[in-house]
Design a protein around this nucleic acid. Structure first.
Length: 889
RNA sequence: AGGCACGUAGCUCAGGGGGAGAGCGCUACCUUGACGCGGUAGAAGUCUGGGGUUCAAAUCCCCACGUGCCUACCA
């Protein structure tokens, strides 16, 4: 069968789309819940439904696809569950911005209309990221694609909410929470980003009632003083002991507030007096509770001062601060202002400074859930890889606080609760209740809040598989094999899936969590739109091919560290793809006349020639390494092994050596065996590389001659090492040949013999085995070192005028004109110097008594051998140098 | 403030108790029958600094300096 000759260079554009469609149409991506095969499953970290693919997605999904394709080829029944997330606040913000352009806000539109609009936007842009994942080559089971707001997933959310509520693990309470005045919603602790901000520390004077005395409090937020309900001092603080229990008068509002004692107050800080604003500060809130203080809100949901702010009512909280500072200066309340850098919380979606605010919210009691989640990792039921992240996980889980899950936005899962107006009963139920079960009234009002997006994401590993229904899919594929994700959502998502999975499935959601780093630019900066350094993965795919991008990401992925992407690297791997392409082109050209019937026979390994046997042994090694690396999630090692083997062993050595057999030798039998090796090794290389570079490997594989057991490389088997080709002798024999060829090339370079000019060489060795090996492989040496005249023997005379080098037990002579002997003398001197430098270290070791007595014997032996080698090598060089010098005299 | 990483060739980074590695870049030569997206050869590093453990330290331990990240309620 004749195979098609490939084009001269690889063009991804003509290949990628074609094969993706082929795979998808044939259903290779599909998992089979009815199969009895061993399973392997991954749920995709769902990207924002209206988002576009960024480089972080490209990394995350490339790694998953490598694992998935590897396991699929290994014969597993593989499920890669895809889907998207509704991303509540983020998506709502986008649609609100669109409305703004039309001069509208969502309140003018109304809840229903607004949600309709979001769904419409989801419909328009929702497919984008999925089609982009396909461009990357992601082999997800697209038929099962889920969306967090699907009916089934929404049902799971309700079910979980209700069960947690019934168990008392969800409660509703007035509590201080993080509030974003721009998004107008509560945020969880995690959704607040802490940033160092240069602020001021204001010292304010609070006078005692009917007295000249006063206390001075220090605050970064003077505007909150309007809501102060106490001043706290440390009970140990001598300065204030006498005033505890007395009352001070709050300036502006002239409200009397007590001086209380609380050991939380740091005596050293500021004045040692702490103003307490329970409604606008987390600590003050806690202190307020223990002292039964009143909670006075002075800032409203939009971040403006409210009716409790007296003259400042209606002002923005920051404008109010400025105004108050001016007023305080005037009235003598302000003692001084110090510069004070401190940390301020910002909304992770819109970067607005969050306002700690007292409000009525829904919470999940997380402690009991966290306990089992901690244990699961402690016991190793779930492994976190790399393990450094375990500590971070434990730390967070152990200090977890209750999770505020209600959001005052519209886009999301409505909390399934109703309130009875007449009797105040709260009804939590899946179905809309018709009347109050307690008082029978039908005056029920529904809860308007929606749930935190992460509440539904936390259910992802089982909600996507049909829970709460007991599906076959869950039975087969839960727990999943591994979760691949970035550390940035370890708490947001991974921790919550652990808690929810253990609670509702009674089992961990995944056996392994593989955590990769962030993709940064060449300078190590985070990619960001404001910085203007974003790279579009689709642009990279377009320019270099999806395979090159995938390989780059895999090669740069080091467990536990961020990766710096550079375009030159991707370009380099495009060259690698091209190299593979051309190696295949060479192979196919030389397989045209190959008699495929030969493939039916299984020749004994010894029938093959040295390079054939050698490359098969090296292939075994590469297979073992790639397998091991993949099992350990060491993507960079696997990539490196592949690159090294394919380029520097298969192409640089094997293909070059094969040319001799293919073109120069007349032996048809030998030629057939080499053709066979060429075909088999190339086939294995393609399969080995397929998880990393799916497109190019399929394109070439399809053109390999001969019958194939499968119609696609995707479903062919991942290579296994074939032990009959592991042969130490072959490896060392080839090693000798490679060394000799390198030495000759080296000499050629140093003596400035043009690469094209054939040379004469004489090899002398006293070692019988070595001589035998050299004689056997003489033609390979001649071919690759471009030697036209070749002599070999143990008793050869060194030609009168020649350059000399030595490798292993072989002396290599290359005759030269007499005029070049001066040059040669210099070269020898240089080489001797090099050897002296190297052997100095060895002799030093051997003259050390301690080393000889304490180091392991095999190490000592090794060093001794090296010393001997250096000695003989040096002798030979020296001898040659002396002779040349004599003659030159 | 605490915790965790990291500091190796010009750049990006592997490695990790027994003579310093890769890719890119750089230099010289080469249209050798797949590939110039190529080939051959080469230059290049007190492995941040200082102590310690050891026969032996770039590697393990301590300290310092530098860089990055995460967590945190000092107003």
């Amino acid at each position: 069968m004749a195979s098609k000759v490939l084009d001269k260079s690889y063009d991804p554009h003509q290949v990628e789309g074609k094969w993706y469609t082929f795979w998808e149409e044939r259903g290779y991506f599909r998992a089979d819940e009815n199969s009895e095969q061993k399973t392997y499953s991954i749920v995709i970290p769902p990207p924002n439904v209206t988002g576009v693919l960024h480089i972080g997605h490209a990394l995350n999904n490339t790694l998953q696809d490598i694992l998935i394709r590897f396991k699929r080829m290994e014969g597993y029944n593989v499920l890669w569950m895809p889907g998207t997330d509704h991303a509540g606040i983020a998506t709502q913000n986008v649609v609100e911005k669109q409305l703004l352009e039309e001069g509208l806000d969502r309140h003018q539109l109304g809840r229903e209309k607004f949600i309709e609009k979001v769904w419409k936007w989801k419909g328009q842009s929702g497919g984008t990221i999925i089609s982009q994942l396909k461009k990357l080559g992601a082999s997800c089971d697209w038929g099962r694609e889920r969306f967090t707001m699907d009916e089934g997933l929404s049902d799971a959310v309700k079910e979980v909410f209700i069960r947690l509520y019934q168990e008392g693990l969800i409660y509703r309470s007035h509590y201080i929470i993080n509030w974003c005045p721009r998004c107008q919603t509560a945020l969880s602790d995690l959704e607040v980003e802490h940033q160092e901000t240069s602020g001021k520390l204001y010292h304010l004077k609070y006078p005692f009632r009917k007295s000249d005395r006063f206390v001075v409090v220090a605050t970064t937020r003077p505007e909150t003083m309007l809501g102060d309900t106490a001043v706290a001092v440390n009970p140990e603080d001598e300065r204030y002991r006498s005033v505890i229990g007395e009352k001070v008068v709050l300036p502006v509002v002239n409200r009397e507030i007590p001086v209380i004692a609380n050991s939380y107050v740091d005596i050293e800080f500021g004045t040692g007096c702490l103003k307490i604003t329970p409604a606008h500060d987390f600590n003050d809130f806690e202190i307020g509770l223990t002292h039964g203080l009143e909670q006075i809100k002075v800032i409203d949901e939009a971040g403006r001062m409210n009716e409790n702010a007296g003259p400042y009512q209606g002002m923005d909280r920051f404008a109010c601060r400025d105004q108050m500072v001016e007023d305080f200066k005037r009235d003598g309340v302000l003692i001084k202002i110090d510069d004070y850098p401190h940390v301020v919380g910002h909304c992770y979606r819109c970067k607005t400074i969050v306002e700690p605010n007292l409000s009525l919210q829904w919470f999940v009691k997380t402690k009991p859930l966290a306990k089992t989640a901690i244990e699961a990792v402690q016991k190793g039921r779930t492994r976190i890889i790399p393990p450094v992240w375990e500590k971070t996980y434990f730390e967070w889980m152990e200090n977890i606080r209750d999770w505020c899950i209600s959001r005052q936005i519209w886009w999301g899962h409505r909390i399934p609760a109703w309130y009875c107006k007449p009797c105040g009963e709260v009804i939590v139920s899946k179905e809309t209740p018709v009347s109050c079960p307690k008082c029978g009234s039908d005056g029920l009002t529904p809860e308007t809040d929606v749930l935190d997006t992460w509440f539904s994401s936390g259910l992802w590993p089982f909600s996507t598989m049909g829970w709460p229904k007991k599906t076959k899919l869950l039975k087969r594929f839960y727990p999943t094999s591994v979760l691949v994700t970035g550390f940035d959502i370890l708490f947001f998502w991974v921790a919550r899936m652990m808690m929810m999975g253990l609670k509702f499935m009674g089992d961990i959601p995944f056996r392994d969590v593989y955590i990769h780093g962030l993709v940064r630019d060449e300078r190590g900066e985070k990619y960001s739109k404001t910085r203007g350094n974003v790279v579009d993965p689709l642009d990279l795919i377009d320019r270099f091919g999806a395979d090159a991008l995938r390989f780059t990401l895999a090669a740069l992925t080091m467990p536990g560290s961020d990766l710096k992407l550079s375009e030159s690297r991707t370009e380099g791997y495009r060259h690698f793809a091209n190299k593979i392409w051309n190696a295949s082109r060479f192979a196919l050209m030389n397989l045209e006349a190959f008699d495929l019937d030969e493939m039916n026979q299984r020749p004994h390994p010894e029938k093959f020639n040295l390079p054939d046997r050698w490359i098969r042994g090296r292939l075994n090694q590469a297979i073992r390494e790639v397998r091991k690396s993949l099992e350990e999630y060491k993507f960079n090692e696997a990539s490196h092994t592949l690159y090294q083997f394919i380029w520097h062993e298969f192409c640089d050595w094997y293909l070059e050596l094969s040319k001799l057999t293919l073109y120069k030798e007349g032996d048809q039998k030998r030629k057939g065996l080499t053709q066979r090796t060429l075909l088999e090794v190339l086939d294995a290389i393609l399969r080995l590389l397929h998880p990393f570079m799916p497109f190019i490997t399929e394109e070439i594989w399809q053109q390999l001659p001969g019958r194939k057991e499968n119609e696609s490389i995707m479903i062919s088997t991942f290579p296994k090492a074939e032990e009959q080709y592991d042969d130490e002798n072959v490896a060392s024999e080839m090693g000798l040949i490679i060394d000799v060829i390198n030495a000759l090339r080296n000499l050629r370079g140093e003596m400035n013999l043009p690469p094209g000019e054939p040379m004469t060489t004489l090899l002398r060795t006293r070692n019988e085995e070595t001589e035998k090996r050299l004689r056997k492989n003489q033609s390979f040496i001649q071919f690759l070192a471009l030697v036209n005249e070749f002599q070999l023997g143990w008793d050869l005379e060194k030609p009168l005028h020649s350059a000399l080098t030595a490798v292993r037990e072989v002396e290599i002579f290359v005759p030269m004109e007499r005029s070049r002997m001066e040059e040669e003398a210099k070269r020898l001197q240089k080489e001797i110097l090099k050897i002296d430098k190297e052997s100095a270290f060895v002799t030093k070791k051997l003259s050390n008594e301690q080393f000889l007595s304490k180091a392991p014997p095999e190490i000592v032996e090794e060093v001794k051998q090296k010393a001997a080698e250096f000695r003989t090598q040096r002798e030979k060089l020296e001898e040659s140098l002396l002779k040349i010098k004599e003659r030159l005299r």
